[in-house]
Structures are given as structure tokens and as C-alpha cells.
Design a binder for these strands. Structure first.
Lengths: 193, 193
DNA sequence: CCTACTTTTTAACATATGTAAAAGGAATCC
DNA sequence: GGATTCCTTTTACATATGTTAAAAAGTAGG
């Protein structure tokens, strides 16, 4: 095990102080994963048993709705990505994770992680905090989707992630915003006027 | 303390087995609250420090968006309600909780609850599970909002909560669905044809 | 460099939902 | 029980977004 998981431990420690024993326990269930652009990190139909940390690159969670490809979310550097609706229910996910730029991930094996909760309450606490924060983000996103126009959401997105336009195809941004490519094009044309 | 919190303990035990000591610790930070119809259980601007369990009645979380009253969610009997974006951040909430039918709640004081996490890991685990499940629901709700029409969401709602139509004003259902009363009326008229 | 493929834009038309105003119903209060 | 207020529906019109198709622009491979 020569891999360097310190980036991840550092990320975790900003949320929850971890004893050396906890840190080692976490590292022991991590693995490094490199995936080239346009490949799937996790396929549709697969039950999610790994939480990924993005060291480098971009990934997206996507699924098919009536035959069209929908992006549920993006994950950029220094963030976690997982299909929680499968992770927490144990059911196969209707969603996949695709890599949009050659990417380096750290994978955390979730059944092993959940086993650590008994021996290391601070690890359970860490992930409680992580998912509480993700939950709050998701509640706020509902407000954003439901009560802002697609145009407002587009401008919010490029404000919060200015480089995303250069890094992911517009069609994925359109489906992420809940609109068609055509609508997004119109919005962009309008903004350029 | 003559109050009966056994409904709540029973609700919790379906998710996580609790020792008698944990049960007593939880009961010690609970209180019974009765609120009449149309009153606020928690006001807008107040920092959320109580998680409520609905024993009887209906409540909704609401806020104002450009002056119009928006319902974020409903809570019926045998469910928990809290403004998580305030609960987990400690910031004042822009949302309030209003009672739509005379209601009986059990309030759980959240700072006291979070203090229990150190002494009772199984209580921390219980609430981790509760909020993980709520998180999954919220992720699924985004899919529902973004990729189903208002009409589909209306029919989904009355399928999953058939009695809600009789119990809450349509205007709240409309804003919950992300549409105007007028649109909801149109959808209902269409269905009756 | 040329071809093929993918992505993005543009155009024309259809539809769902929003806005505003008015009217009909239902509940509440004195 | 009449008046008032709130809730719901209806109408007419405006607008945003969807759908389909085609053109244009950009990208990748031989």
C-alpha cells in the first residue's frame, strides 16, 4: 500500500478530528482509482458500495429518463460523490457515474466503512456530518429548482463554478438545470446580447 | 413528567434498538406541545432548536418567496418535522412551521439531543439513520420535481397521501408542487373530465 | 487534410404554466 | 342569518420552455 490518501484525511479532518487509529482504519479501506475520460466509474444497475473522493477531474451522476440522458449532479475536485439512494438503501441504482475528464479518485468501500462505525464512533460522527451537510445542500437545491427560472439557475451555476462551462458539455449542464439543450442555447444567446 | 412519549420511542425503535438508559435520556429532553389550527409552531427568523414529532394533526414548513407564501413540505401523523437547514447550521431559518389542523407534537430539544450523542452512540446512530433516510427522500424529490410535470406530481401526491386533499387548502398543495393555484385548478379540472 | 461524428445553435411551431382580474363557493364572525 | 373574508375556479392573454428538424460549428480519427 504505497498510495497517498492524505488529501482525503485532510479533507475529513476539517469536519471531524480523527485519532491516528481512525485515520489508519479509514486508509485501510481506501483504494486509488484512475478512470479515463468518458468511461463509467460505476454503471447503471450496480448497487453503490463505494463512496468516491475526487482528487482530480470531473464526474457526473446520470440516468435515463424516457430514453434521454439526465445529469443529476457534478462532482469537481475535492468533493465526494456517491449515489446515496443506493448506498443507504442497498438497492441497485438506476443511476451511473461517468467521468468527464481523466480523473483520479479515492474509493472508500462503504460496507467496510459502516463496519468501522462500531469501533470508531468518531468515524460514524464524521460521516453523519458529511451527509447532514449534503442533506442541507439538497434541501436548498429544491428551493433553487422550484422557485428560480432556468435562466437564474444557469447564472447561479456559472457564478459558483465558473470553470464548469469549459469542462463539461453544455448538454449535461442543460439536463442538470432541468431544461433542454435548446432552451439553454436560447438562454445563453440572450445573455450575450 | 406525566407525559406519554412512548409513541415516539416506539417510532424510534423501528429504526434503531435503544437501551432503557437511552430511552430515558431521550424522554428527559422531550416535551409535549399542543398548537391550535393556523398558528405557528415556529416562527420565521427563529433558529431551529427543536425537532418535532407529529402525534396528531398536520403541519407545514413554509416561507415567503417574493411576497408569496410557499409550502416546502407537509408533515402528517407519525413523522418528524424540522427546518434542517437551520438545525444543522445554527443559522436563523427563513422558514416557519405552521399548524394546519389542531395538533399534538412531541418536541425534542436539539442542543440537548446533540449532547446525548457523546454518552449514547446509539442515539447518534438513530438520528444518523433518520437523516440519511430524509436525505434520500430529498434526493428523490429533486428527481420528481425536475423531471415530472406538475400534473404527474399532483397525481403522485394524492396517490401517496390520499387524505391530504381533504386536510389542507389547495393553495398550499399548489405551492408545494411548485405551481400556482390557477395551474392546479386547471390540472384538477382536466382530471375530472 | 478530409471525412465523419458530436456538440451547439437557430428556426418554427406547440404546449404548459404564469399573471391578472373576476366570479362563484365555503367558512367564519358578529 | 347576513356580511365579511378566504378559498377555488374560470377566463383571457403573455411568456417560457418543449419538440422537431436542420444548419452551423467544433472535434477526432484515418
Amino acid at each position: 500500500m504505497t498510495e497517498d490518501f492524505s488529501t482525503l484525511i485532510h479533507y475529513f479532518e476539517r469536519l471531524q478530528k480523527l485519532s491516528p487509529a481512525s485515520q489508519e482504519a479509514i486508509k485501510a479501506i481506501c483504494s486509488a482509482v484512475h478512470i479515463p475520460k468518458n468511461q463509467d466509474l460505476q454503471a447503471i444497475g450496480h448497487t453503490c458500495k463505494t463512496i468516491y473522493f475526487v482528487k482530480k477531474g470531473i464526474a457526473r451522476i446520470y440516468y435515463y429518463k424516457d430514453g434521454t440522458d439526465i445529469t443529476e449532479s457534478f462532482a469537481l475536485e475535492n468533493s465526494l460523490i456517491a449515489r446515496v439512494e443506493s448506498l443507504f438503501t442497498g438497492k441497485p441504482s438506476k443511476k451511473g457515474i461517468q467521468v468527464l475528464e481523466d480523473a483520479d479518485f479515492i474509493g472508500i468501500h462503504s460496507p467496510a466503512l459502516f463496519d468501522l462505525y462500531d469501533a470508531f464512533p468518531e468515524i460514524e460522527r464524521l460521516f453523519r456530518k458529511i451527509f447532514e451537510a449534503a442533506y442541507v445542500d439538497t434541501v436548498n437545491r429544491i428551493e433553487s429548482i422550484q422557485f428560480h427560472t432556468a435562466e437564474e439557475r444557469y447564472h447561479d451555476l456559472i457564478t459558483s463554478s465558473p470553470d464548469i462551462l469549459q469542462r463539461v458539455p453544455l448538454k449535461h449542464i442543460a439536463s442538470y438545470l432541468g431544461i433542454t439543450q435548446v432552451s439553454l442555447s436560447r438562454i445563453r444567446a440572450k445573455g450575450a446580447r
